[in-house]
Nucleic acid binder design. Structure first.
Lengths: 208, 208
DNA sequence: ACAAATTTAGACAGCCTTGTCCAATTCGTC
DNA sequence: GACGAATTGGACAAGGCTGTCTAAATTTGT
């Protein structure tokens, strides 16, 4: 395990103040001196960890968003599968859990450190996802007012049942992820599936 | 400020490991010795803080759930107002923010400490809220499959836009809370408002 | 095989923190 | 005002952590 990876693990488990270099070097399988040689400083090492996690997480998120179902065969099934991928590859995986925990624990103390994440992470991520939903709406698969709102609500719904697990730093089972995603997507589609306008015209435009 | 309150503040700001008794006693306006006289131990003081926060938060949540609109005049407006109350009184207030942060930061390290919270907090809370939604459904105001799922999704939707702010420990503005609640409730109602069953019988049972 | 670069173990000073002890002071109550 | 209880400030030992230093060992490149 690389030094930065070990450091990420220890920082997350023990918090910045509680982490000590001996633990990190032991977990990385190198001597303490090597840690100092490479990163000079505890603070510096922490910065490297955050950068590393931010980068990998963003890459993972964008890679996953690229698999968004633009031409869905079965909209519900495709969105559920997408939600499950999102969870597995971006939110529940090692990097996602670690970054989330570091942001929660140290975000207030090092605002400048996470400013980069704030802009490049959620900012771009949500925009990208919103664009995909807008495209689905444009293609007639959904009826969406504000795509940004819809994207945020999609993520919120799909993770609704995993909140406590996340809060306690746990890892939901595959089954929990699937259940939460299924329930979330069904509600999402109940709200946004293309259907009558508020007035209630039902049978228009069924030319699929 | 009481010792426990000051300790809560410092533990949240600095984390358990980073908090030191001098800071706490200074913030509480007492001598360090007094802190030790009252609570004996750093660990002990931390336990007292968690108990205190858990208790007050649960009380607040149940008091707020008691204001759930059972006989709504305007369902959307009433649910939005309820959601705003929930946020303001339980989630964004001092106790809510502090407890959340402590759970996130130290929940893994002291599982037995937060087990009580886990059972009495989210467990009972969500059941209580689910019961209220079930009642609304029974009275014909909503069309809900699983009230527990609906309750969790309600909370998730209503907070969908506040996630990042919460993650970074910030306090959303009154306006942000209202906006998130409004968007969330609208989507919730779009999904759960009483209307045709999946098959499509529309005009049944309108005897309000 | 050899030289340079890197890694290692250990010792070390400096600092901070916890938790205890104690004498002096303040406070609450009668 | 007087007495007991609580609070205070300060000193203190014990221990932990950071970051540096050094000399030996190991790896790497050629």
């Amino acid at each position: 395990m690389s030094v930065v990876d070990a450091a990420a693990s220890v920082f997350c488990r023990e918090g910045y103040a509680g982490a000590n270099i001996d633990l990190i070097s032991a977990e990385a399988g190198v001597s303490r001196q090597t840690v100092y040689n490479h990163h000079g400083d505890k603070r510096n090492l922490f910065v490297a960890v955050v950068r590393d996690l931010t980068e990998r997480c963003n890459a993972g998120i964008f890679a996953t968003i690229a698999t968004f179902p633009d031409q869905p065969a079965d909209l519900e099934a495709d969105l559920i599968a997408f939600a499950v991928r999102m969870n597995r590859n971006c939110i529940c995986n090692r990097d996602g859990r670690f970054l989330r925990k570091l942001i929660q624990a140290e975000g207030e103390r090092y605002p400048e450190l996470f400013a980069e994440w704030r802009e490049q992470g959620p900012g771009r991520t949500w925009s990208a996802l919103a664009a995909r939903f807008a495209r689905l709406a444009f293609a007639g698969h959904l009826s969406i007012g504000d795509p940004d709102v819809a994207a945020r609500q999609f993520l919120a719904l799909v993770n609704a049942e995993l909140q406590i697990t996340f809060m306690l730093g746990g890892i939901p089972t595959e089954e929990e992820v699937l259940r939460s995603a299924t329930n979330g997507v069904r509600t999402f589609l109940a709200a946004f599936a293309r259907k009558k306008s508020p007035a209630g015209k039902q049978a228009a435009l069924v030319h699929a």
